[in-house]
Measured scan of single mutants.
Amino acid sequence: MPVRRGHVAPQNTFLDTIIRKFEGQSRKFIIANARVENCAVIYCNDGFCELCGYSRAEVMQRPCTCDFLHGPRTQRRAAAQIAQALLGAEERKVEIAFYRKDGSCFLCLVDVVPVKNEDGAVIMFILNFEVVMEKDMVGSPAHDTNHRGPPTSWLAPGRAKTFRLKLPALLALTARESSVRSGGAGGAGAPGAVVVDVDLTPAAPSSESLALDEVTAMDNHVAGLGPAEERRALVGPGSPPRSAPGQLPSPRAHSLNPDASGSSCSLARTRSRESCASVRRASSADDIEAMRAGVLPPPPRHASTGAMHPLRSGLLNSTSDSDLVRYRTISKIPQITLNFVDLKGDPFLASPTSDREIIAPKIKERTHNVTEKVTQVLSLGADVLPEYKLQAPRIHRWTILHYSPFKAVWDWLILLLVIYTAVFTPYSAAFLLKETEEGPPATECGYACQPLAVVDLIVDIMFIVDILINFRTTYVNANEEVVSHPGRIAVHYFKGWFLIDMVAAIPFDLLI
């Protein structure tokens, strides 16, 4: 008679799926529990143990900040960024110097990925580790590398530091407007667009060049630039800015003055950032001319202004700041037409079709709590990747769950009947059967004279019903998954307890 339990259901295979997918890609990662103190490590794979030199037993239950890997060259700011990422709910990448158990130093890129439950609360953290440099290539500990984003994938490793954006290309926007319009339909740009040429040739750093990471940081200074100062900065030398009595002219307006920039070969870094931020506020060169004239017309309804409409929906549905990093990277690809469009465009503009998908598509409701890094690593669709929660398995109709209350009560009843059979069957065979043979035949009273025979008949009927119930009862397979398919249940029961239950259900007393 089957006594099969499996009270692990309803099970959740999400954690096993993450481990299996990460292991298949030869990654070095740990999984931490966000619900406990210090976000203790609950799993670390073999790749991480080989990377740091510690065994799994030495890593388990330690804080996922990996303070046991810190050393003299470990930056405090990087460690603080990892700790801050564990307090938030967004994906974050941090470069930090770690030390192995043998004392060797290596520069590592740590990717902190939160995993949320159905309520939107962070319950786990996945920390992925990628070695960037070994100890002989690690720089000085005073050099802070965590304020910069990861290198873009479309640049060669040897040319990542030679990417320079020439400031004269930004200063000569109005001069290039006529050349853009003359391109017409034969050019790649839309009317009114501004073409910015980027020099990728390796050259020595000069005062006129600005690194790509500095251009990325310009967006942080746009908020500090007032509207009046932006307007004066875009007017140009024809209309000098008016300053109040006793007030000095704005240095932001002076930063885009061609006369002032041409007199000296070098520009201050602050002026460069502010000038680029001011130019980015204009949607095209037409807006710059309109600002000089004193009238700013409404933005025209053409394809170039609607190019950012799908980007707005993608940004609203993005799951991490990696989408913004990807957008900034692609927006700086050289030799393309940049349409400086305000994100607050007309909502009635139709979304044009684009061959290049900048932001990841909208994630469906079932995966809105899973970050983009987890979705990318697992390579699963929205119909396959579940949320991290207890999910009731989908069972067929008329199927009994093996952990249901009805099955528990039924098993206790069958257990009592088995005990009765084990006690009274030998007793009936030894004593009652002998008395029946010696006594007179009682054929007239039937079952009324033999109450134990009636009980034995009921017990046999219950055993037959138990066999039928076992054909529709779920079970737990070797992978700790609840199986509810009727065919698989029948095959599993035939290979197991079916023969024993059938022999126990045969009414031998009635056959004798």
Rank of each mutant, 00 (worst) to 15 (best):
P2V: 06
V3Q: 15
H7V: 07
V8L: 07
A9D: 15
P10M: 15
L15Q: 03
T17P: 11
T17G: 13
I18N: 01
R20A: 11
F22Q: 06
E23W: 01
G24Y: 07
I30G: 01
I31K: 01
A32R: 01
A32K: 01
A32D: 01
A34D: 01
A34M: 06
R35L: 06
V36H: 08
N38P: 14
A40E: 05
Y43I: 01
C44H: 01
C44P: 01
N45Q: 01
E50C: 06
E50M: 03
C52V: 13
G53D: 01
Y54M: 01
S55T: 07
R56K: 06
V59A: 01
M60Y: 14
M60Q: 03
M60H: 01
Q61G: 14
R62S: 12
C66V: 14
C66N: 01
C66G: 01
D67T: 07
D67K: 05
L69P: 01
L69K: 01
H70S: 05
R73Q: 13
R73T: 11
Q75E: 15
Q75I: 01
R76M: 10
R77N: 10
A79S: 07
Q81T: 13
Q81M: 12
I82Q: 01
A83R: 09
A85F: 01
A85W: 01
L86H: 01
G88T: 14
A89I: 08
E90L: 13
V94G: 01
I96M: 14
A97K: 12
Y99K: 01
Y99I: 01
D102L: 01
S104C: 12
D111T: 14
V112D: 01
V112H: 01
V112A: 02
V113Y: 11
V115G: 02
D119Q: 15
D119G: 06
I126V: 12
L127T: 01
N128P: 01
F129C: 01
E134N: 13
K135D: 08
D136F: 15
V138A: 15
S140A: 10
S140D: 06
S140P: 15
P141G: 11
A142V: 14
H143G: 13
H143S: 09
T145W: 09
H147G: 05
H147R: 07
R148P: 12
G149I: 06
P150F: 06
P151H: 12
P151I: 14
P157H: 09
P157Q: 06
G158N: 15
K161A: 06
T162W: 14
R164L: 07
R164K: 13
L165R: 09
L165N: 10
L165E: 13
L167G: 09
L167Y: 08
A169V: 01
T174G: 15
A175L: 01
R176V: 03
R176D: 06
R176H: 06
E177T: 07
S178F: 06
V180W: 04
V180P: 06
V180Q: 03
R181M: 06
R181W: 05
S182T: 10
S182W: 05
A185K: 09
A185F: 06
A185H: 14
G187E: 15
A190T: 14
A190L: 15
G192L: 03
A193F: 05
A193C: 15
V194P: 01
P202M: 01
P205Y: 04
S207L: 06
L210N: 06
L210T: 12
L210I: 06
L212Y: 06
L212V: 06
E214M: 05
M218K: 05
M218W: 11
D219V: 06
D219S: 05
H221T: 10
L225D: 10
L225A: 06
G226V: 08
G226I: 15
P227Q: 06
P227G: 07
E230D: 06
E230V: 05
P237N: 05
S239Y: 07
P240D: 13
P241S: 10
P241Y: 15
S243E: 15
A244N: 14
A244T: 10
G246W: 05
Q247L: 07
P249D: 04
P249T: 14
S250D: 09
S250M: 15
A253I: 08
H254V: 05
L256Y: 06
L256D: 06
N257P: 07
A260N: 12
A260I: 07
A260T: 12
S261E: 14
S261W: 05
G262R: 11
G262L: 07
S264L: 14
S264M: 12
S264A: 14
S266R: 07
L267P: 07
R269Y: 13
T270G: 14
R271W: 15
S275N: 14
A277E: 12
A277L: 07
S278R: 09
R280P: 09
A282C: 08
S284E: 15
S284K: 07
A285G: 07
D286T: 06
D286Y: 08
D286P: 07
E289Y: 01
A293I: 14
G294F: 07
L296K: 14
L296N: 06
P297A: 07
P297L: 09
P298N: 01
R301E: 14
A303I: 08
A303S: 11
T305F: 11
A307Y: 13
P310G: 09
L311D: 14
L316P: 08
L316M: 08
N317P: 06
N317Q: 07
T319K: 07
S320K: 09
S320T: 11
S320C: 13
S322V: 13
D323T: 09
L324W: 08
R326A: 13
R328C: 07
K332V: 01
K332M: 05
Q335E: 12
N339Q: 06
D342K: 07
D342R: 07
D342Q: 05
L343V: 09
K344R: 05
G345I: 04
G345Q: 08
G345C: 05
G345L: 06
G345S: 07
L349N: 14
S351M: 07
P352R: 09
T353S: 10
S354P: 14
E357T: 11
I358P: 12
I358L: 07
I359V: 07
K362D: 14
I363V: 11
I363T: 09
K364V: 13
K364T: 07
K364Q: 09
R366F: 13
H368A: 14
H368V: 10
N369F: 12
N369W: 11
E372I: 04
E372C: 07
V374E: 01
T375P: 05
Q376Y: 11
S379V: 03
S379R: 05
L380D: 03
L380C: 07
G381Y: 13
V384C: 02
L385I: 08
